[in-house]
Simulated assay, not measured.
Amino acid sequence: MSKPRSLALPPRTRVYRLTTARGSFAVLDTAPAGPRRGTALLLPGYTGSKEDFLALLGPLGEAGYRAVAVDGRGQHETPGPRGRAAYRRKALALDAVAQAAALGDGPVHLLGHSFGGLVARAAAGLAPDAFVSLTLLSSGPGRVARSQRVRVRALRGALALLPKERVWLATRWLDSRGEEPGATDPPEIVRFLRRRWMTTRIAQLSGAGRLLLGDPDGTAALLALPLPLHIAYGDEETVWPVPDLAATALRTGAHHTVVVGAGHSPNVSHPVELAAELTAFWERAADVVSTGSAGAARSRRAGHGAVRRGRAGNG
């Protein structure tokens, strides 16, 4: 789960419901500071929401990109059905394709954080023409780390047996014993986290957890995508094994960004550095796509990047 450090809206950001062919979705839509260089659709992770990208939206807008973060179906402020079938991978992927179309800007850059990466991969496979590029942020094509599988299984089991409020309190206690045991969140952040937890559908939490636990290795599917590919993560990533992410980037020839000092959410902890790498990749990806060369797109793919000691550079 990403935890925003502030709920302040960046400049030029609208909050509204995006109407699509598959229903309406709550979004944060940040306009570019000047001429638009492109549009990015940002999909959040497990137990997360569009607010996970608040710190990233401003830098992307300043760099000339329209950046739209979305609550998926059943997530936070987007309603969702109760049934299990509504949260299968294909249904969620079709939602992302519909969201991209509804933005009205033509093909967009697609970014999925964590669980959102699973959805983004599937969406790009279903409708590659809807997207200029694909970025997997802190998200792998293989299985999550064993500790995370245990956590997701426990969460799904608890949701099946206990009131949602009880599960919320238990997760807060576990977080207090985790990476920052002495840390305290500001009251407004705690209120937001609780509201997000309580408004997210149990069916969505259960369905997303099921997909995380059962996700097959998607490296072959990534290799087949006719899109520029970017794999980005922090060097202190905990949900997917870092060696697996690095190996996937090497095998696929993806543009590869490592955010030094970041954990599972560089979008929260290192937004300026991450935005610099994203926009550099997007600019090169747009150039590759504009040539109309499928071979160039498959060969990826715009080079290798790294963020080190909080600064952007090439490695």
Rank of each mutant, 00 (worst) to 15 (best):
R300C: 06
Y233Q: 10
T184Y: 13
P128C: 03
P266V: 00
L136T: 07
G157R: 14
V70D: 00
E273H: 07
A100S: 10
L223N: 11
P44F: 00
D235R: 00
L223R: 11
T19V: 12
P79E: 01
P163A: 07
T291P: 09
H230M: 14
D244T: 15
L155F: 06
P128S: 08
L54S: 01
Y87E: 01
L227C: 02
R149L: 08
P141R: 10
L56C: 00
R298T: 13
H230G: 06
A280F: 11
G292F: 12
A254Y: 08
Q204E: 07
M1V: 09
V307I: 15
T39K: 02
M198N: 09
V27L: 05
A26P: 06
A286H: 14
V242I: 09
G182V: 00
R301V: 12
T78C: 06
G157S: 14
H113S: 00
D185Y: 14
V268G: 05
G34L: 04
V289Q: 07
A154M: 14
T279G: 03
A297M: 11
A158I: 09
A91P: 11
P107R: 02
F192P: 02
G305S: 10
A67Y: 00
S206E: 10
Y233N: 09
G116H: 05
A123T: 11
A21M: 10
A203I: 08
R196I: 03
K3T: 15
S290Q: 12
V289G: 04
L28Q: 02
A220L: 13
P187A: 14
A306W: 15
P216F: 03
P216A: 08
G45E: 03
R166H: 09
A96V: 14
V260W: 03
L7T: 00
A130P: 11
R172E: 10
D217T: 07
A26D: 12
S269T: 05
A208W: 11
P10Y: 04
W197I: 06
D95Y: 05
V68K: 00
E51D: 14
L250Q: 15
L18Q: 10
G38T: 04
D185F: 15
V119G: 04
V27N: 01
I189G: 01
P228Y: 06
A8N: 05
L162S: 03
R251F: 08
G74A: 07
R17M: 14
Q75V: 14
A286G: 14
G45V: 14
A130V: 11
D95Q: 11
R191G: 04
